[in-house]
Computed example of a mutant assay.
Amino acid sequence: MIGLFAAAGLTLGAIVVSPQQPLEHRTQIEHASGAIDAEYRGIVTLDARQIGHPAPGGRAATLRCEWNADMAVEREARHANGSLLSRSIDGSKALTLTRAGWCNAHRSDVAQHFAERSDELRSRLVATAEADRAVLIAQVERQLAMAGE
């Protein structure tokens, strides 16, 4: 029965990884109506998927675990007029890793591996913030137009 689940791919659930430093990025955007202070917080989760199956003695096993580190980003921005603009940006596969064997056997090693790659995750957070700039400015302008400012 386990071989059936393993061959189909078994998701073991997500665990939250705590990089050595929190994934946060702050920036200020100048706008004609005033400065916008934005804070981006990256939330990293690990997802494991068991693939393949163990083999009886003397045969090669195909059992391996695929790990994905996904990052969702929460943005809170405050405009100079005091208004708060929040946004959740869906997570994307930031980093991947494959290990031979059972997923549970590598859980702590894999968490450490992704924690050591926190610079790559931080770079993704900064890139997400830069990509969000136009959306944030559009939100501010829409809010100002609705307020008649």
Rank of each mutant, 00 (worst) to 15 (best):
M1G: 03
L4T: 09
L4Q: 09
L4D: 08
F5V: 09
A8K: 12
A8R: 13
G9A: 04
L10A: 02
T11R: 14
L12Q: 11
G13I: 05
G13R: 06
A14V: 07
S18E: 15
P19F: 02
P19N: 05
Q20Y: 11
Q21S: 14
Q21M: 13
Q21G: 11
Q21R: 14
P22Q: 08
E24Y: 14
E24G: 00
R26W: 12
T27A: 02
T27M: 09
Q28N: 00
I29F: 05
E30V: 11
H31A: 15
H31W: 13
A32N: 12
A32E: 14
A32F: 13
S33K: 03
G34C: 07
G34Q: 08
A35K: 14
D37V: 13
D37W: 13
E39K: 14
G42P: 00
I43S: 04
V44M: 07
T45Q: 13
L46T: 02
D47A: 13
D47H: 14
R49G: 11
Q50M: 01
Q50V: 04
H53V: 04
H53T: 01
P54Y: 01
A55Y: 06
P56C: 10
G57L: 08
G57M: 11
G57K: 14
G57F: 10
R59G: 07
R59F: 15
A60I: 10
A61D: 09
T62F: 08
T62R: 06
L63T: 02
R64T: 04
E66I: 00
E66V: 01
W67F: 08
N68T: 15
A69H: 09
A69R: 07
D70K: 15
V73P: 01
E74F: 13
E74D: 10
R75H: 08
R75M: 15
E76T: 11
E76D: 04
E76R: 14
A77G: 00
R78P: 03
A80I: 01
A80C: 07
N81C: 00
G82D: 04
S83Y: 14
S83M: 14
L84M: 07
L85F: 10
L85D: 00
R87K: 14
I89G: 01
I89Q: 02
D90L: 03
D90Y: 00
D90F: 04
G91W: 08
S92Y: 12
A94K: 11
A94Y: 06
L95Q: 06
L95C: 01
T96H: 13
T96Q: 15
L97C: 09
L97I: 12
T98H: 11
G101N: 02
W102V: 04
W102D: 03
N104G: 12
A105S: 11
A105G: 05
A105H: 09
H106I: 00
R107F: 01
S108P: 03
D109K: 02
Q112A: 12
H113T: 11
F114D: 03
F114P: 00
R117P: 00
S118G: 06
S118A: 09
D119K: 10
D119S: 05
R122A: 10
L125Q: 05
V126I: 13
V126H: 05
V126C: 05
V126A: 07
A127F: 10
E130W: 03
D132E: 00
R133D: 04
V135G: 15
A138L: 04
Q139F: 06
E141H: 09
E141G: 10
R142Y: 10
R142M: 10
Q143W: 02
A145V: 15
